[in-house]
């Protein structure tokens, strides 16, 4: 039982490099496809959005940009502040750290109806609207999944760079997350042609 728990919350002790990357890619593709069906998208490593009327390629672009930027940023931070870091370790562990997002993507149907009604409300200006319990349940799950993914990303960065737990690692991680979110927020609209 302890082993399963450790594998869920720190798989990088046992798997890293290109093997982790391949498994991570499978999860990313599944997340994009399932998310597209349920209208759930991940435009960044912190964001989970319900957006109607987007296509599958949007989901793929969101995932590709978020993960690519995260890999590059954390690799650069590793090169600057750690003794030794291999690109394939950062690539594999950061990619695999996104696997919990499949849960949010799969449960996105809980929020679909409320999001459609919310959009209509915003268009019509009628603010008399109550979000359902299903929406709040999904929101709670999406937040927990986001935290889980961030914990995995932290462990991915820690193991791939060999940096010791402490103030330096914490601040580098926070900087990496903020830079990734910021750069993704700029790149995604550029790649989608300003949509």
């Amino acid at each position: 039982m302890n082993n399963y728990f450790n594998t869920l919350f720190n798989p990088f002790v046992r798997i890293a490099g290109y093997k982790a990357f391949l498994i991570g890619i499978v999860f990313l593709l599944l997340t994009a496809v399932v998310g597209n069906i349920n209208q759930i998208y991940f435009p960044g490593i912190l964001s989970t959005k319900s957006i109607p009327c987007l296509q599958l390629y949007h989901a793929l672009i969101f995932q590709a940009i978020a993960v690519s930027v995260a890999v590059l940023i954390f690799y650069l931070l590793g090169l600057l502040f750690a003794k030794k870091v291999r690109f394939q370790d950062i690539l594999g562990t950061v990619t695999l750290s996104r696997y919990p997002c499949l849960i949010s993507a799969a449960l996105g149907f809980l929020a679909q109806k409320d999001m459609a009604q919310l959009m209509e409300m915003l268009r019509s200006g009628n603010i008399a609207f109550t979000l359902s319990l299903r929406f709040w349940v999904f929101t709670l799950i999406a937040m927990l999944v986001c935290v889980w993914s961030l914990v995995l990303l932290y462990k991915a960065f820690k193991i791939s760079t060999g940096l010791k737990q402490g103030v330096k690692l914490t601040w580098l991680f926070i900087a990496g997350v903020l830079l990734t979110e910021g750069i993704s927020a700029v790149l995604i609209p550029l790649c989608l042609g300003g949509r």
Binding site: F12, V13, R14, A16, G17, R86, D89
Partner: peptide, 11 residues
């Protein structure tokens, strides 16, 4: 174990 884990143990 993963390569970075073994490398960190050695370090």
């Amino acid at each position: 174990l993963s390569y970075p884990t073994v490398r960190n143990l050695l370090n």
